[in-house]
Write a protein that binds this DNA or RNA. Structure first.
Lengths: 220, 220, 220, 220
DNA sequence: TATGAATGAGTGTTCATTCAT
DNA sequence: AATGAATGAACACTCATTCAT
């Protein structure tokens, strides 16, 4: 069960084994319900060794978050070529994102669910990664606006909101694609791309939707 | 602190006090970190009474989820008038959604974060509420497609994906609006509405975005 | 073993049982070597109850120190009648002291050994009791000096040193009397009283011992 | 920090480094709170080496006690010249004692506090040293009695008690001198010497203090 | 002579839960 | 309708100690 109990390995290797086990347990049970005993057992080592190398449950969880955040951003970065057009970059990024999250569901659970639910310290850790991605998307939208329409009549906050919405939609679709049978990562990416790019285009063409002024009659 | 310690109240009232306390504690600390002691104290009753009325921590949490899910769907339902046009319905629904989540942050934390992070049982509980909302949005999209374009050439799964994306974006923007200073619920709703409705329109007009066939050369 | 397992007792009673057990274990094993498990078992209760009533090992130990310090000073205070002559007061106090320490060896171990060996916090707790006793002795010496000799030519620090020495000798003799077979508390008190009172009288009569000025030849 | 990390030294030297570190840690933290990790680190060696040379924590502590007990008795022995008069010998011995304990506070803590608080084995180890000192003082008192008065009308046990009291007073004053600012080791020695020698003289002159026969009326 | 890698056994502490009233 | 008294089971964490080199 778990890693084969090979004795006496260099520290760096053992640490990765421990992180592997920890991501799996944290991702499935949640931070608080995960027990260090279980993690140690899955890693094939004794508990004291986990503490020797990773100090505490908090530090271990933080290490997991950092490693998986880096892995995810790396995956997206590697999938995108900055010299291609904006829409192509977005498409490639989405594909890489959906592929990575579906291949590493426990890691995605750690980042998307667990880290955000157990204290500011962890939330902050993952927030910085998210901001990086939102910034990337924001840049793409700005580029697209300039390239296709010359003049971006969108205020900055509007763009930020769009990026936020797009990233949120992507996160949501990741869960959807992973749990709905028959939906591939590619299809999810296509759906979102279609929706987003069309919406963006229309928006940049000035097809704004104007909110009504009359409030609906709400009975008590 | 907490509810004023009034003795001997009818069961229904006491139960609501307990649920109030529980939602607050669960929403802030998280399911596992919340202690029955703290909840009982905040509710102004002794722990055995909590158990007498609500059986167990699991049942208490489930009761919280159910009550708050009902409250949220009620709020949205109440905000929407089915006789109005689809876009107006969506707009009103979004407004109601953003307003409710920002007014009940602990409840929203319970539904959006805690319930999804602590076991299938709770996740299923909240998923049914979400499905209801997704179904509502799906219906709106279908209506819009029929009304505005006569022929919905969108396959069903595509529509489901769109609805999913829209709801995910809304959830994400709820958090964004609640934490970003200077962003009101109404602005968030406007941003999303703009984006979604424009995108939907473009999509229904046949402006699909076609994915490329050549993969990007990814060097190691 | 330990207290008979009687169920459901009022809190105050249980607390005393716990302190009884704790003093015994702390006194014999020492603070660090004592385990809360053992204390709980000897007290005839479960560990959580000990924590519920006494919070932590530190607090439990502090409670022991306070209770036993109060018991000891009370015993001495009760044994002494302030209207009697100074020598009689000292004699009665010593008797009470030796009697109490020999009747409560574990308590004396807690106060004299354990509390002083495990951190400033505990040491300070017991130091204040000791200061009270030293102050009592200091007062007696001053009274004796005035009564018997009219003019106390002893500087204040000298008196403090004497009191300190006397208390130290008493503490030391307490251990001696408790471990040397055939030595009663009364005999120990007599020995010390004899020594101290004679010495004090001689001192007040001006029979000072003058230190030599030539250092002894110390070879390396 | 701690010993400079010089590699490959002869065993005897390394052992002394370890004992130095151990005395410091044991003296400050106490036997149980001291960790072998900390001692090894302060000694500048790896933990297995400590075990290789000194077997176990118990053995290490015992070695500390033995070394420091020998150092203390040596210091006292070296300070005393057997050919001088008894009072001079006592004076020199006290001076040496106070000087040594104030110069080696950690060692004194090990001997006086730690060794007596953590099990019979260690207490016995230090008790034999103490007995040696008590025997030395006993001898001095006997000599003084013979020299000054020809006939020692003091029973043996009385003398033993006196010696015990004197040593206890000395131990107590050592702590007092080390913690009270402005009190030197010499002053402490003078205070004690004065007290003890005067008391002894008076005692030998037959000025015994007679205990009363009427018990004090102790009301409840 | 010397150490990096590893663990069995235990510690203090907490929590959901129940009993007797 | 309500509670003071009590616990079984678990958890994070530490430490003295050893093995393989």
């Amino acid at each position: 069960m778990g890693a084969v109990k090979t004795k006496r390995m260099p520290r760096a290797v053992r640490e990765q084994q421990m992180l592997d086990a920890a991501v799996r347990i944290f991702g499935r049970r949640g931070y608080m319900a995960a027990s260090m005993d279980e993690i140690a057992e899955l890693a094939g080592v004794s508990k004291p060794l986990v503490y020797l190398y990773l100090n505490s449950k908090e530090d271990l969880f933080t290490a997991c978050i950092r490693r998986e955040a880096a892995a995810l951003t790396d995956a997206v970065r590697t999938g995108v070529r900055p010299d291609l057009p904006a829409d192509r970059q977005l498409w490639d990024g989405l594909q890489a994102f959906f592929a990575h999250t579906s291949e590493h569901p426990d890691a995605w659970s750690v980042l998307h669910l667990q880290a955000r639910t157990h204290g500011e310290r962890f939330a902050a850790e993952v927030a910085s990664m998210r901001e990086e991605i939102v910034a990337f998307v924001t840049r793409l939208i700005a580029v697209a606006a300039r390239d296709a329409h010359g003049d971006p009549h969108l205020p900055e906050r509007e763009v930020a909101g769009l990026a936020e919405a797009l990233v949120g939609a992507a996160e949501s679709l990741a869960a959807w694609a992973n749990t709905t049978p028959g939906v591939t990562a590619r299809q999810a990416a296509a759906t979102l791309m279609n929706f987003a790019w069309a919406g963006l285009g229309a928006l940049l063409d000035g097809q704004v939707w104007t909110p009504p002024t009359t409030p609906p009659a709400t009975e008590a």
